[in-house]
Amino acid sequence: MKVGVILKHIWENLFTEPMTKKFPKEPVQLPEGFRGRVGYIPENCIMCNMCVLNCPANAIEIKPEEDGKRWTLHYDRCLNCMICVEVCPVEALYNDDKEPFRVVTDRINAIETGKVPMVSCPICGKKVPRPSNTMVKRMMKEVTPRNLLKAAVCPQCKKDHKPEEIDAIIDKILEEGSYPDMDKLLGKEGLE
C-alpha cells in the first residue's frame, strides 16, 4: 500500500544520516569538467584579440595604455562558457576551478585584469609588445633571455637584417647588458 511505503521512508529517514552536504565547513565537490572562472596568464598572451571577438557576452576588452596593453575581463558579464579558453591560441587563458563561485559587494571587484608591457626592439628601439612565453617555447623550444630578445625584434628589423646579423647583435647586447627593458622582457616588471 502507498501509505505503507511513505511510512517506511519516514522511518528510514529518521534513523539515517541526513543527506545534506556540510557545505560551508567542507569544500564544494566539483564534478568532472566543471567550468569555473577564467584565469589569465599575461606572460603567455600575444594580444591577438581572439578572445574579445569570440566572447558571446562581450566580457573581455583589450585597451591600449601608455606603456602596454591592458586585457580586462568583466567577470560580472562572463557566462563561464570557456569559449575564450578554447580559442586562445597560446594557452594564456585557462579554466580555473579553484574558485567555483564568487560573491561580491561591488561590481568593480568583479574585474580581472592583466597588462602586457611594451618593450623596445633590441635593434632599432621601436616599441613592440612583450613576446609571449608560449610562442617563444613553440618556436625556440626554451624560454631564455636570448630567445626572448630574439622574439622581441620588430618585423621591420627582421626584414632588414639577416638572421646571422641579428644573432650577432643580440650576443653583443647580452655581453654589454645594454638592453633597457630587460626586466620587462623577463616578466619581472610591467606584467600584471
Binding site: 560580472d76 557566462l79 563561464n80 562558457c81 563561485f101 564568487r102 560573491v103 559587494t105 568583479a110
Partner: peptide, 19 residues
C-alpha cells in the same frame, strides 16, 4: 547589496551570499 556571479551561479554561491 550583493552580487552572485556566474551563469548560473552554483547553489553554494547563493548560499554564501545569503550567509
Amino acid at each position: 547589496d550583493l552580487y552572485v556571479l556566474g551563469c548560473p551561479p552554483k547553489p553554494e554561491g547563493i548560499l554564501t551570499a545569503l550567509l
